[in-house]
Each structure stands twice: as structure tokens, then as C-alpha cells.
Nucleic acid binder design. Sequence first.
DNA 1: AAATGCGTTTGATATAGGTCAAAAACCATG
DNA 2: CATGGTTTTTGACCTATATCAAACGCATTT
Lengths: 208, 208
Amino acid sequence: MQRLDALTSLKRTFRRGEYLYRCGESFRALYAIRTGFFKTQVLHEDGREQVTGFQMPGEIIGLDAICSDAHTCDAVALDDSEICEIPFDRLEELSRDLPGLQRHLHRIMSREIVRDQGIMMLLGSMRAEERLAAFLLNLSQRFSARGYSPNAFHLRMTRQEIGSYLGLKLETVSRTFSHFQEHGLLSVKVREVEIMDLLRLRSFVGST
Amino acid sequence: MQRLDALTSLKRTFRRGEYLYRCGESFRALYAIRTGFFKTQVLHEDGREQVTGFQMPGEIIGLDAICSDAHTCDAVALDDSEICEIPFDRLEELSRDLPGLQRHLHRIMSREIVRDQGIMMLLGSMRAEERLAAFLLNLSQRFSARGYSPNAFHLRMTRQEIGSYLGLKLETVSRTFSHFQEHGLLSVKVREVEIMDLLRLRSFVGST
DNA sequence: AAATGCGTTTGATATAGGTCAAAAACCATG
DNA sequence: CATGGTTTTTGACCTATATCAAACGCATTT
């Protein structure tokens, strides 16, 4: 356990807008978010961007870099944040001695794969309203798991970033928020969201 | 190395249309494809399906099940196939003794995450022609890596399955094939594809 | 307090891709 | 080789979302 503590001893802080890593940089460590908020994005050479995820405290980023020893996306702080660096070779070493840690690591990687499957489902076969509803419910659930209200929260990302993540244009995101508001599902004031009717919002997605 | 051989000794065959596993089934093993062709899909309760991938020999499926000890998607043979079962607990055990194997497993999981990022990019920010071009180029590259022609191959999946994977309707897939053919990029006769102008097809992805 | 600047909202219009429908091609089976 | 079922193609039309454009809100600077 001391060794595990030693593994996670290096902490770093980031201001809003700063990059934790950039696509192409060589891979050394995974990062556990302690506080704050990040996004990960892939950039196409023609300038198009695809936001691949929003990460909150307790989540691990950098897993994509293992396969090629280089990061395949950017990670950007959306809020002042603190992360904890986990050197990957030492993590592998330690997980050889600690089956519980090994299993944990595998679970984390697998969970990321399942998360991605969910996004494929979202992007591949949902309509705009379903996408936004699924997105909000996902945030709600994650805030809730961290002890915050599942019904009222502050969005750390712009409409454009939400749109990129959901495969929609920012105007469509904005309009869909307005629709939801008109129908009494939620109240939204720029970045502040309050979900009024969680059940009905859920029924939009079909499941969850 | 004997232990590694022992690990991969259980083989099974599947006829076209048979399920390797189904969503919800409990997780015991990963599967390495020896011969044949599979698809993985997630089903929404309202009947919508999302194909999450097409797998060929040498590829590993089942990684999604690690995190919850249950499969989160279906895997269906698209061709008569042979797979090799890899009991996961024994794989973990062995990878504690063999750092090379451990690293290999991590790379495979990470590669899957990167693959999924690519699909998000595709679904989130490409148009129909780009999606289909990217799909064909991906198949081409994978056939090529297996010693088959990169220019001529047989599609194992239906237009509907391609469409589901690419977030398009089957009619759109069909029409886009026709467009490509009209422009001399490829020749397609139902399931037989021959790429005539690989460079120009490539220039589709990442332009416009 | 005015000016600047980004992010957001809203409206008008355009279009890529979806939907519906029918015909054609293909494939498995008796 | 005739049959019936599936898959594919193609056409006509429609709609969800994109695009373009303008105004607005809010925060920061001057």
C-alpha cells in the first residue's frame, strides 16, 4: 500500500484552458483527476475537432496512449484542476504484485471501452433531443455519484463543445435546450442547468 | 510458453449467423478470432441496433465485458468462423508472470479505445461519403495486413449492417456506393468491392 | 460608463440524408 | 430450375439538422 501511495504521489495543477497533454506527445503516465474538469478531443488536420469525452474527479485519462506510446488526443482543463500523475511502467510493475490492482486497471480500461460503445450508440442512432437528454442524464448521474445534486449543476463546457461531443452544431444544442425548457423538462440559464423532470427526460432516451 | 499455449487451447467453430456471446451473458473469457468474420452490436430495447465493430482473424473480442463481468454487446459470426477461447482469470494470472504478455494485453485494450475514438470522429464529424470511404479504407488496410489484396475484397456484411456501423441508413450506403462507382473510384457488385483509385478515395476522408 | 469580445439565442433558409415505395438482383431450398 | 425470401438499387419526396446572419447577454478592459 505504501508502494501504491508512492505511485500516486506526483500531483500537478492546471489553470482553465491549459493542456494536460497534446496529441503526439510521448506517453509516460496515466492521470487521475483529483479536482476540476477536463475534456479530451481529437483534431482532424482540416481543423474539425471531435470532443471524445468530459472527465471529472476520480476518472483516469490517458489510456489511449498505451497502445502506441504516444497520446492520440489532447486533454484540456475546462476548469482549474488538480491531477495526480501515475507513471505507467511503475503501475504495470506494481499490478504484477497486486492482483487486486491488476484487476482494477483492467476494469478501468474495459469501462472506457463500454463508455465508448455508448457514445457510438448515441452518435449512430439517436436524434438530437435524445443525444442531449442522454448527455445531461449522464452528467447528472456522475455529479450525483460525487455527492453533488443530480438536478442542478453548472456546465463547464461551451455549446460548441457539447455539440462536438454529440455530433451536433452548437445552434442545434442551444435550440434543443430551449425546447426542453419550453416543455418544462428543465430550466437552463446559459451554463446553469436545473433538471425539473428527470423521469420525462429519461423517457426521451428510451432507456438509461 | 507452454502455459501460454495451454491458455489458448480451447477452440470452437461457429456457423454464419451464430452468436459467440450475447449481451448480458456472464463473462469468462476473451476470444481470439482464428478464421472468419464477426460483428459486435448493441441493441436498444426499442429495436434500434448499433453495430460497434467488424472483427477479423487475429483480433480479440470480449474486452467490454471485463468491467462488469457480463457482456455488454452481442457478437455474431458473419461467416463460418473459428475462435480460440482465452479464459480471462488465467490470462490475468499468466500476465503477472510474463511482463511481455501483460504489456501486450494493455496494448490490445488501449488499441480498442483508440479504434473507438476513430469511430466517434467518423460518426460525429464526417459526412456520408467520408464515412464510407473511411470504412472501406479501413477494411482495405486490414485485409492487406492479413496478406489479402487491399484493392479487391468481399464484404461479409449487409448494407444495413454497414449503415448501422456508420450511422447511416442502408439506402444511403447503397447510393454512396453508386456515387463512388459513377466517379470511377471503385467498382462494386453487391458484396464484391474493387477499389480502383485508392488515393482519390483516401483524399475523400479529411476533405470537404 | 462605454467599449470590446466571446458565447449564446433566435430566425430564415438550405440541404444532406431519411423515409417510403417499387423493382431488380441475388440466394437458398425443394 | 422454379420459388419465395432476402438484400440491393433506384426514384420521389420529406424532415431534421446545418448554415447563415443578426441580435443579445455577460464579463472584462479602458
